[in-house]
Design a protein around this nucleic acid. Structure first.
Lengths: 145, 145
DNA sequence: TATACTAATTGTAAAGATTATAAAGTAAGA
DNA sequence: TCTTACTTTATAATCTTTACAATTAGTATA
């Protein structure tokens, strides 16, 4: 089923003028099969076996392209580097402040927040993001010793 | 009234082992009077008149200290550098994707989200953050030409 | 299938933000 | 005042991301 989403992504790229290259295919494939939310460097390291000559620039370039087309979302947390998420459907992230684990979390109906924000600020609202911070079960258990 | 919040912050620092220095006082004062959400470099530049010898490291060090004590919140958006917010009471930010303007936005009752996240993920939830993205009135008007 | 046009990749350098380190300075309590 | 531990400073180092120019490679077209 992950392959299904990947296939959809590949198809949607065909309809643009974005060329398909082996590197792009591999980056997309990795992102769509990833259970985690990898950094650019994670992706680079994961693919250096298959593409020993691939440049980091290629990873960054393509992540930007995928972002522009809407296939990928960039997550910027407090830590040093961005993470990338192929799941662009509406969901939020619960983040462990101790070990960095990120868990997806579905919650409906924050459209109301957007609507209210529009009225109060006169902005033309496009989207929102939310993260929930805390300790994952494992880290929490450790802290209680 | 800003001075009142600043005074409270200074008092709360006295109860810790955090020493008061002229640099720390100036950084806190600047943050608590700021209408915007400045970057570390903004703060550095703003204070270099008063402290020609102050190091950037001092700004970063102290922002970290203030964060640890809970006086200051760090905001990491997509762009290169973090922003800092002295207002640690619950509020959200509405951000213009074109000009970068940030407007505070009050909204109650997302405690429910935290509660649900706890139940679903078994995390021990501590806090959450949310940002709303769009175009500010000025930028939106420009785009309609 | 060969050609040509244009976009993509590579390798490296550069930029920008943040942190580490060691020496010198200073706040705060005894 | 003295002492100690914390802070500041100055600089170097690190880390992430982007810029750039030369080379390579998709893809549309003939």
């Amino acid at each position: 089923m992950e392959n299904h989403r990947l296939q959809e992504a590949l198809d949607s790229l065909k309809s643009t003028k974005v060329r398909m290259t082996p590197q792009r295919h591999a980056i997309l494939e990795f992102l769509f099969n990833a259970k985690t939310h990898p950094t650019a460097d994670d992706i680079y390291k994961a693919l250096e076996g298959k593409f020993p000559n691939m440049s980091v620039a290629t990873v960054y370039n393509n992540l930007r392209v995928f972002k522009e087309v809407g296939l990928v979302r960039e997550l910027t947390y407090g830590d040093s580097s961005s993470r990338f998420d192929s799941n662009t459907s509406d969901h939020y992230h619960v983040i462990c402040e101790d070990c960095g684990k990120i868990v997806d979390f579905h919650y409906p109906g924050l459209d109301e927040v957007e609507t209210l924000a529009e009225h109060v600020t006169n902005f033309k609202v496009k989207e929102h993001r939310m993260e929930i911070y805390g300790a994952c079960p494992e880290c929490h258990k450790l802290k209680q010793h």
